[in-house]
Amino acid sequence: MTSCQDVGRLMSLALDQSLTQSEARCLEEHLRQCPTCQEEWESMQRVSRLFADAPLMEPPPGFADRVMRRVAQRQARRQRLLAGAALLVVCLSLVALALPETIRWLALLWQVITEPYLLSHGAKMVAQLLDLAEALGRACWLVTTALSSSLNQPVLLGYSFLVLVLTALWIRLVAGRRGGYRPVVNNV
């Protein structure tokens, strides 16, 4: 005689139409003799019918559109992350490339700054440079006053006007070229 537990397994297989003929006979025989299993079998069949008759639940309207919106958002976020990661890699590579050269220059600069002569005579050198700048300024002033005194006023004015016109023409030419640039678009 088959045990009640084994019969329970057979009941489940019977609900899926997966019983062999001998198993089906075995189940039938047991159910005739065991009221407890018979009661359980009826209950199982009832639940099974209830589930089999229950329809597939339809998603609410616009469900697919909402899914695709989220897909697009996730895709955009992913692309932004990828772009950020790429930028970071480029920056790190540049830093890695420039680092040895920067260190070399910094070391050189440090060497110059910490030079004992420069440290002791730094102030003197700055004073000499200022003297030089003053002398150059005086020379420029002398040249200008000499020009204005030797040439006629109209000649000087004309010369200044010519310089201004040439400068304006040059600016217009450069600015015009920049403003006139348009990317090529193929309107197919």
Partner: peptide, 17 residues
Amino acid sequence: VKSTLYRARRMLAQGTL
């Protein structure tokens, strides 16, 4: 899977009973 389905069905049947 067979075992899971059997246990689930038994649980449902016994609960209903």
